[in-house]
Design a protein around this nucleic acid. Structure first.
Lengths: 340, 340
DNA sequence: CGGCCTTCTGTGAACGTTCACAATCCGCGT
DNA sequence: ACGCGGATTGTGAACGTTCACAGAAGGCCG
């Protein structure tokens, strides 16, 4: 309950001026050793700790040594791995990290970023929701550096780190084509999410380049969560001329596909690797990306900006890695049909 | 690059005093509507945003509306789920969350907590490492509220939310005993970790209460990660009189057990549920705890303290849930042996 | 028409720290 | 003895905001 001691208290206890305490705490040279010792004893005695908030206020020229990290959902392993590597990078530089989840809700994103900015963060690592373009422009005018990760903020000219979603998807589709599949279904989350749209484009391109047609019956967007994904698969498989393979646009959908098809009824390749993918029966082939690398790169870029790098916004594209575990094979009883 | 506008700038632009701006920004009553309108226009024109750091400095009586969350490893799904629910609870109350991982390293824990405290956090949700007892006492003397979660801080008299690790483990062991296992091995992480030790105690009690003896050959502590766990299992199975079932003390170890025994060579029950546990062959039975509930409860307790609750420290114990998926059964070819 | 209350607005100080500069002490050269 | 330079320490202002209070209008009542 006792109020925190301030430099004033320490000064009184040590019988010196407040400024001398400040100097000792800051580790500045030019304080007589005995004086410093006396001050340090007072500090220990009172349990004094510098108030970094007041400090940052005064030395305004400098930064607040805090960054904000805004992700879609911190509980999602992909984002939490990303968050951890951002935090590690910040820790190494003596920065603190404020964290917030948006739930893919532009309003909550606004709230969170606004609160961060009011706390004078030096920069932001952001997984943008898609809205709030003008809002972010205003933030940046105020000097907050922004780096996007996983997806770009549409219409906002900032650094962005993401993987090559199209190429990664094309590889996956190519793999399925190689295994004889010609009716390959696409299952994705909401198409407004940039990554989902990119993957869908990759799918479309790969299919048409192979000389096949994109059959609208085989396309499903807007699948939120594994339940809906499993249901969608059930419907497709029950329909006429069902697909022989599925491409799933994220890990949750892949999970739904696993639920729906534990019995090897179709080929499957998913975007995003996940724990135990290799222990399932069959083991699931995936397009894998490295969230830690994304986070690390984003943080490094952000700190570069904070350190004064004013070059034109950079766009960093990391590669995906296709991991073949066998789930892309043609299922035993399925009948490949050429065309649609 | 332009310096952020301050209330002074807004005041000048609107032709009023700084205090009037402050009133408008704070939404206080008692400002003439026209004046308020003029001020608000100036605010929009300049893109002004209040500096909450300066604000919190002045109204020191109040809190900084920031809490710190310190976990072992944010990338671990258990802790990230916990983190997410803490963050949600904070968001609902208009608090911000500083986050840090300790990596189970007392020094890093100290660094992080110290930096948080220097930033005047109102409270801390903490997954303690085990060291730093005196350090935390000092922090609390400064008025920082601390709530421990997942494990108590030994020798520190604060609120703590955890599950009943002993009872959960005892249930798991009982389940294995019921299925005829008499040689049940224990695989745990470092015994210095409180949860691990509790689980080990639960194991020991359940075994002895069943009239069996605890065979040191079947006990392994200090397994870090799935690799070591798989190796340990390999050794035990290769030895004389091998166990017919394993209890694994955390999810990583369970993973190692899955790797080592995909072919149903032994019974298995793990502590902590994990994604896809039900999709493996065989599906894995687990003692499940709810990290989101842990986080939510911890946050609620912390905010209670921040709001002035001075009651004696509470210890909240949440129940675990045993999920029987079948992996505890006696494997086909194994020979149950009574006694050791 | 004076007094007083109400409504609105402004002033000075303060939060805890650092910056820029001034003051003090000491030794030493001339 | 005088002043000068270096080392050490102190003083006042400032960062951007809010608190406590004071002042300036205007209205209403007796």
């Amino acid at each position: 309950m006792a109020a925190r001691p301030t430099m004033k208290d320490v000064a009184k206890a040590a019988g010196v001026s407040l400024m001398t305490v400040s100097r000792v705490v800051a580790g500045e040279a030019g304080v007589a050793p005995q004086t410093a010792a006396r001050v340090e004893e007072a500090i220990r005695g009172l349990g004094y700790q510098r108030n970094d908030i007041a400090r940052n206020l005064r030395r305004k020229a400098q930064d607040s040594r805090t960054i904000g990290l805004v992700v879609d959902d911190l509980a999602n392993p992909f984002f939490s791995a990303l968050a951890r590597s951002v935090e590690d990078e910040a820790y190494r530089r003596g920065f603190l990290v404020l964290v917030g989840s948006t739930n893919d809700d532009p309003r909550r994103e606004r709230d969170v970023v606004s609160a961060f900015s009011a706390r004078q963060v030096d920069g932001l690592v952001l997984v943008p929701t898609g809205g709030n373009r003008a809002f972010f422009r205003a933030q940046m005018a105020r000097g907050v550096k922004v780096v996007c990760v996983d997806r770009p903020a549409t219409g906002l000219d900032v650094d962005c780190i993401a993987v090559d979603n199209r190429a990664g998807t094309a590889t996956a589709i190519g793999h399925l084509l190689d295994r004889g599949h010609t009716r390959i279904a696409y299952l994705g989350d909401r198409q407004e999410i940039w990554t989902q749209n990119e993957r869908f484009v990759g799918y479309t391109e790969a299919i048409t380049e192979a000389g096949l047609e994109v059959d609208p019956v085989l396309i499903r967007h807007g699948l939120r969560g594994h339940r809906q994904a499993a249901a969608a698969i059930g419907e497709m498989m029950a329909g006429p001329n069902p697909p022989t393979a599925f491409f799933s646009g994220n890990d949750l959908i892949t999970l739904g596909a696993v639920e729906a098809g534990a019995c090897r009824r179709f080929g499957l390749v998913g975007f995003d690797d996940f724990v135990l993918a290799d222990k399932l029966d069959p083991p699931i082939s995936v397009v894998s990306q490295d969230p830690a690398a994304l986070g690390r790169t984003a943080a490094q870029l952000l700190f570069g900006r904070i350190d004064g790098d004013n070059a034109a916004p950079r766009s960093v594209v990391l590669a995906t890695r296709f991991i073949d575990r066998g789930s892309g094979a043609m299922a035993a009883g399925s009948t490949p049909v050429r065309g649609g």
